[in-house]
Simulated assay, not measured.
Amino acid sequence: MKQLLKEPLLHFIGLGLLIFIVYGLVAKDETDENTIVFDSYDLNSLLSKWELQWKRPPTEEELKGILETNIKQELFYQEALKMNLDHNDEIIKRRLSQKMEFLSNDLVSMQPPTDEELTAYYSLKMNNYLTNYKYTLHYVNYSFDKNKQPFQVASKALSQANKDQLASLRGAGDPLPFPNYFENSDELSIRKTLGSSFTDTLRVIDTNVWTGPIQSGFGFHLVYITDRKQPAPIPLEQIKERVLNDYNYDRQLKLDSALYNEIKKQYSFELDLNEEEFDPEIIELVESTLKGT
């Protein structure tokens, strides 16, 4: 139980629920339905939005127009709520749901991870922070344009070659408009030239032997890899900002899910479906989802 109480995620959930509850109480106590409060935050928000768009402060006339537009919008908004016009409006639901998510986003930014937490996260997700494969290789091409059956032509050339000797096929095949070798090249750069199917195959074939045929968009290739460097962890200090962004994103997902589940406990759901209109499996799925099972 003590370990559970130390869990940071529980602290976030508690803080988040406290914010929502306090906000609701304050809103009810300080205003009534016919009172509109316009404070410093509102004015600063209007001015900031204007300056962000126009790169200058508004003139007196422009500020008056902004205020009148804002007042009109607020009045119409309050009257629309009284008339229940927001009920079942998908756009409004989506927007308000997003604003609730933004509140939980703010909670994450309030407590950045310690160096120890970030290092632990980096160690746990190490496979996400690896260098790419690197290759030094030679290849020959048997193109679709110059061969009716390029696969068969390449296969025959391979069967007649001394597979262990690089020189036995070097310079063979059909020319390409770029070099027929890569030296200590990142997998990504090879993929840009010959495609992902080609580079995927490079990961598993033998080195220091002619292998193939391997297809790309240019034809079929025979490949001789002289060096293949396996992916290795990128030091944390080189990608700390990237790891921090990933850490915050993952923590945000956990917080959103936890808050959702906690808030969901405060509500009950009733199911009123016509059993003759829907498949029993669909009704069962809806029922289990509403119950959270």
Rank of each mutant, 00 (worst) to 15 (best):
E62K: 09
E74F: 05
P58M: 10
E90H: 13
D86L: 14
E60S: 14
S109Y: 06
Y121C: 01
K64T: 12
Y139F: 11
Y129F: 01
A161E: 11
E61T: 10
M126V: 14
A80R: 08
L137I: 01
L81D: 07
L158V: 10
A157G: 15
T59V: 10
R94E: 03
L130Q: 13
R56M: 04
D145I: 09
T69N: 14
N128L: 01
L96N: 00
K125F: 05
D115E: 15
A157N: 14
A157Q: 14
Q152R: 08
D89K: 15
L130T: 05
L118I: 00
N84T: 05
A161I: 04
I71A: 05
P150F: 08
K146I: 07
I66C: 03
L118A: 07
V108I: 07
S97I: 03
P58W: 05
E79M: 10
L81E: 04
D89N: 15
N127E: 02
R56W: 08
R94L: 06
D86G: 15
D115V: 04
Y121H: 02
F144T: 00
P58E: 12
P57F: 15
F144M: 04
V153L: 02
P113T: 10
P57E: 15
V153Q: 07
N162M: 04
M100W: 06
Y135F: 04
S97H: 08
L63D: 14
N128E: 08
V153N: 01
F151G: 02
L130N: 03
E62P: 02
S104A: 09
P150Q: 02
I71T: 10
I66W: 02
K148I: 05
Y139R: 01
M83E: 14
T136M: 06
I66D: 00
T119P: 00
L67G: 12
L67Q: 09
K146M: 09
S104W: 01
M126A: 13
G65K: 01
V108E: 05
L63N: 14
P112Y: 07
D106R: 07
Q111P: 10
R95G: 09
T136H: 00
H87R: 06
L103S: 10
D145K: 13
Q78I: 03
N132H: 11
